[in-house]
Simulated scan of single mutants.
Amino acid sequence: MVTSRKVRRRVPWGVYLVLLPTFALLAAFAYYPALNGMIHSLFEWRPGFDSPFTGLENYRTMLGDDLWWSSFRNIGIIFVWAVTLMWVFPLLAAELVMSLSSERLRFVFRTLLILPLAFPAVVNVLLWQFMYDPRDGVINSLLRAVGLDGLAGNWIGDPDTALVALMTIGFPWVASLPFLVFLSALQNVPAEIYQAAEVDGAGRLRRFWSIDLPMMLRDVKLLFVLAVISVLQYGMQAHIMTKGGPDNATQVPVLRMLDAAFVDTSWGYAATLGTVLFALTLGVSVLALVLGRKAEA
């Protein structure tokens, strides 16, 4: 019986030396802050003053923090929105681009669709903040112009519409990572498969369900994991536009952590919330790696 053995290729020491600066920067700006936050979560941390050790008291406080736990309801809604509607339009755009017969047109439309990614995210949020302005905003102005004054409203100032308004930022969400991932996956499908499907008389919809979707399954899994991590870290848009309001309608865990630190000046408790978010993000990442290896085995 012949057994195959994997041949290990020796890596020159010079490669490790080149990587040392990268690991040094990671240690200074990633690993150390995370470890430092874990340590301070066990203290009544007051920067520059005596910080008495409190053990797990901050974690017990977290268990009774209704605002902290209710914020997870909002990111749950954001997550469902992110993996449904915010994937549909990028997927449709990728399919439409790939349906073009001209390679030059594909390049032009692909460039036009991803060009907005070059603009800073903050600029995009501020633009939408102006669009939502209850008096001079573009949305209300258009509604009034067509005689739909009754539909105009204070989109980010009303608890019933504020969260949906935040999630709608960037509509139709084509200039995004999902579009790039879907387009890349479709470009990697061998042309012979499409030719065989055409010979068999498969229509556009049948081709999508039988070829495109199965070929993109691995990329969809990656996007799913990235969506979980991104939602756990969500907070920039809500911080700029609503500060978690009105009436905590747009409160998310990251904003609760920032409020604990900069509003309540409870730095130790803020470190506790940050530690929990870090643990959740790390857990999702490790789970994704484990499941990915099992799928490849």
Score class of each variant (00 low, 15 high):
252 V>F: 04
214 P>C: 00
218 R>M: 11
259 D>S: 02
182 F>R: 02
230 S>A: 14
205 L>Y: 15
242 T>K: 04
203 G>P: 03
217 L>F: 10
247 D>Y: 07
190 P>W: 06
227 A>I: 03
225 V>N: 06
198 E>P: 09
202 A>I: 04
192 E>V: 09
219 D>R: 09
162 A>D: 09
256 R>M: 13
199 V>M: 13
262 F>R: 00
237 Q>R: 05
221 K>P: 13
190 P>T: 03
245 G>D: 14
238 A>N: 06
185 A>K: 06
224 F>G: 01
154 N>D: 14
203 G>K: 03
211 I>C: 01
180 L>R: 02
199 V>Q: 10
172 P>L: 13
184 S>C: 09
203 G>L: 03
161 T>H: 01
258 L>N: 01
196 A>R: 12
201 G>L: 09
153 G>I: 00
240 I>G: 11
226 L>W: 02
245 G>N: 04
228 V>H: 14
262 F>Y: 01
173 W>C: 12
262 F>D: 02
157 G>E: 01
236 M>T: 04
185 A>N: 14
220 V>M: 10
248 N>V: 05
232 L>S: 00
174 V>H: 15
164 V>L: 08
168 T>D: 08
199 V>W: 07
223 L>Q: 11
227 A>H: 03
199 V>C: 08
195 Q>K: 15
189 V>C: 14
231 V>W: 08
190 P>D: 05
207 R>T: 09
150 G>R: 06
211 I>H: 00
150 G>D: 13
171 F>A: 08
199 V>P: 01
176 S>R: 00
165 A>F: 00
160 D>I: 05
215 M>K: 04
247 D>I: 05
196 A>S: 14
157 G>P: 01
164 V>M: 07
162 A>R: 02
150 G>I: 03
181 V>M: 11
206 R>N: 13
216 M>F: 03
225 V>I: 09
176 S>P: 00
203 G>Y: 07
172 P>N: 11
222 L>N: 04
235 G>L: 00
261 A>M: 06
188 N>L: 04
194 Y>T: 01
236 M>E: 08
250 T>S: 04
153 G>W: 03
150 G>N: 04
190 P>V: 03
204 R>T: 09
239 H>P: 05
239 H>F: 11
155 W>E: 07
150 G>L: 02
218 R>E: 10
195 Q>H: 15
257 M>Y: 05
189 V>W: 12
200 D>M: 10
175 A>H: 00
152 A>Y: 15
208 F>I: 15
217 L>Q: 11
257 M>R: 03
196 A>Y: 11
221 K>Y: 10
230 S>D: 12
230 S>R: 11
186 L>T: 11
